[in-house]
């Protein structure tokens, strides 16, 4: 175990009665990283986070936070973690500042320090003008910020945020994202999300979770590149269908193609390239050469679903 590891998960398995939520999960997160846990609903993100934050025990495997075991040294681990659960539960009957002071006291801060920290995090999260408002009267965006402020109030080494931007409007999402990015300097952050662009924008590394297993773990750029390797090109060309078919079949760079008629004389060609070659210049050159009319030429960006499909594919093929 080395000092620069913040989270160390080894062979983590969590079984609920009847089903396995997380199976044999292993990953590490270094100090100062922002890591995104990505996956569809039910992939085991929340379960993993609950285990990391000492709320649930693991069925087997070891989990260490800052070198401490989450089960045997739970109190010490909890002192170091700022955790915001899914749906961000808050005491709706308390006022913002009062709530943050209460939470700071619970987390072991002194009276004076609690007051100071409450003021600091309110400033940090843009809660200054609602400090005396009852939380139940706040909008969802503000409540989310209160949850975030609570996670930060005791200056934890590790911040765990479960779906921090769920249910917010685009402007609020941007504000929260900005805030998370700002934390990077002094904290390690683990966030979960099922929105790919969100993870791309905030995280330095992403772990893709699917049915309790890690399918891919890499930087957003590398994952994107992985996707681009097999990206699909869509071209709409006015040409005889047979010629098009022949043309694609002869091109060695094309792995798969599909030609379907659209309106008028145009045909819609969906092409999959081999080995990540960018087909677009080739297609453009081809149409110019043959004197065909090209109406559309686009590269389909992969959505998260495609990534799931992509990374799950090899496995599915192995299983008959």
């Amino acid at each position: 175990m080395s000092d620069d590891l913040m989270i160390e998960v080894k062979n983590l398995t969590k079984r609920y009665a009847g089903h396995t939520a997380v199976s044999n999960l292993s990953f590490t997160v270094g100090r100062g990283e922002i890591v995104g846990l990505l996956g569809p609903n039910g992939a085991g993100k929340s379960t993993t986070m609950r285990i990391l934050s000492c709320f649930l025990p693991a069925s087997s495997g070891t989990v260490r936070v800052a070198g401490l075991d989450v089960f045997t040294e739970s109190r010490e681990v909890r002192r170091r973690i700022g955790y915001m659960p899914e749906n961000n539960p808050l005491h709706l009957d308390m006022r913002v500042r009062e709530y943050l002071k209460f939470r700071a006291r619970l987390k072991g801060l002194g009276r004076k320090r609690s007051r100071e920290r409450a003021d600091v995090v309110m400033e940090q999260c843009g809660l200054k003008d609602v400090s005396r408002t009852i939380i139940g009267h706040l909008s969802k965006g503000y409540r989310q910020r209160v949850g975030l402020a609570d996670a930060l109030v005791h200056e934890p080494e590790l911040i765990i945020l479960d779906e921090p931007t769920i249910g917010l409007d685009p402007r609020q999402i941007r504000a929260v994202r900005q805030l998370i990015k700002g934390l990077a300097a002094s904290h390690t952050v683990l966030i979960s999300t099922h929105i790919l662009p969100e993870a791309e924008m905030t995280c330095s590394r992403m772990l893709i979770l699917y049915e309790g297993k890690i399918l891919a773990a890499d930087t957003p750029e590398n994952l994107q590149r992985l996707m681009d390797n097999t990206s699909r090109i869509v071209a709409e060309i006015a040409a005889p269908e047979i010629e098009l078919q022949e043309c694609w079949a002869q091109m060695p760079e094309i792995e798969q193609f599909d030609v379907s008629p659209t309106d008028g004389e145009y045909f819609r060609c969906a092409l999959t390239a081999r080995d990540g070659i960018d087909l677009r210049p080739r297609i453009f050159a081809l149409t110019r050469e043959r004197g065909w009319c090209l109406r559309e030429l686009t590269r389909k960006r992969h959505s998260l679903e495609d990534i799931y499909v992509q990374v799950t594919r090899p496995e599915e093929e192995e299983e008959p």
Partner: peptide, 14 residues
């Protein structure tokens, strides 16, 4: 029910 039990139990209290 409200979920605050989770935030409570993940603070360093016994």
């Amino acid at each position: 029910f409200s979920g605050t039990y989770e935030t409570l139990m993940t603070t360093p209290v016994s």
